[in-house]
Amino acid sequence: MFIVNFLIRRLAQGVVIIFLVSFLIFTLLRVIPGDPVRLMAGGMAPDHVIDQIAEDMGLRDPIPVQFVRYMGGVLQGDLGQSFIRPASGAAVGGASFDDNTRSERAEVFDLIADTAPFTLQLALLAMAFALIVALPVGIYGGLRPGKWPDRLALYMGSLFISLPNFWLGIVLALVLSVNLGWLPAIGYQGFAYTILPAIVLAVEIAPFLIRSLTVSVAQNMRENYISVAAIRGIGHRRIVMAHALKNASVPLLNLLGVQFSMLLGGVLVVEFIFDYPGLGLLTINAVLQRDFPLIQGIAIVTSAAFVVINIIVDLAATTIDPRLEY
């Protein structure tokens, strides 16, 4: 019963958040100067054609009217159609206004659904890389506060967090793929293309994990239950692995929820550098092309992902540590 209550409350809050996010983005996009119709129709289109198109698409209506219409569609699972992208592929933003070869415009939902798996794959691999590095460094640093493993954790964290991701991406691409030829870098033709972007992303995530682990492991090791465990005759190894680490993983999980947006920002830049066909590249292109429906769709999907991830994180945290209440 507790679970059901919790889920209902959090989902209701989540809906409010998603609504606020979409309203904010929707309003911002329309308040800011720059006419998307001009981009759609091409620079050479006469004014009356532009007005005609804008009228047909309802872009000249008052903002609240447009918003209600849009949200009505969203509630039925319809995120609208991209302004610029045709269903068949390549963008035709610059084509002339009376070009008849233009095909149907792509559904925003399809565009997002097509690219999201790539981003998920990238994010998971990056998370795996980051954990491989952060777990040993962070745990060992937390076990010996003030000693060299702790220093190592501090220096490694400071070093990694100081590497701008786009610069690191360029340098790694130069060294690992141009000079050494070990890994492919640009585009996507197979799983190998995920590795280099994932490394760059992992370097960005790892310092946060290391810091959180060091602090929480060190904190837990000072608790009474750890000293008592030793008296109970439990081996040091088991105390660290089963007891301290279990409790130390709660802040780590929370971090994942809070830093989700940072992870997404990293994905954006990394995908742009490596021309990786995920959600991040789609977002950047959507912004540069003023593709309003696509930007809105992405904002709604990402804020929904944020809500869901935070609910899962909290559920997992209460499972690990039943003392927590949400």
């Binding site: 809050q13 409010v16 958040i17 998603i18 606020l20 996010v21 904010l24 983005i25 911002l28 996009l29 800011i32 100067p33 720059g34 809070v258 989700f260 947006s261 940072m262 997404l264 920002g265 954006l268 830049v269 977002t283 950047i284 912004v287 540069l288 003023r290 930007i295 992405i298 904002a299 990402t302 804020s303 944020f306 809500v307």
Partner: peptide, 23 residues
């Protein structure tokens, strides 16, 4: 706090490039 949560759930960089890309 609800406004803060909403703001927190928009990835900062998407917001930034959305505004700066258009303005």
């Amino acid at each position: 706090m609800r406004i803060t949560d909403a703001q927190l759930s928009i990835p900062m960089i998407i917001l930034a490039i959305a505004i700066l890309g258009v303005a």
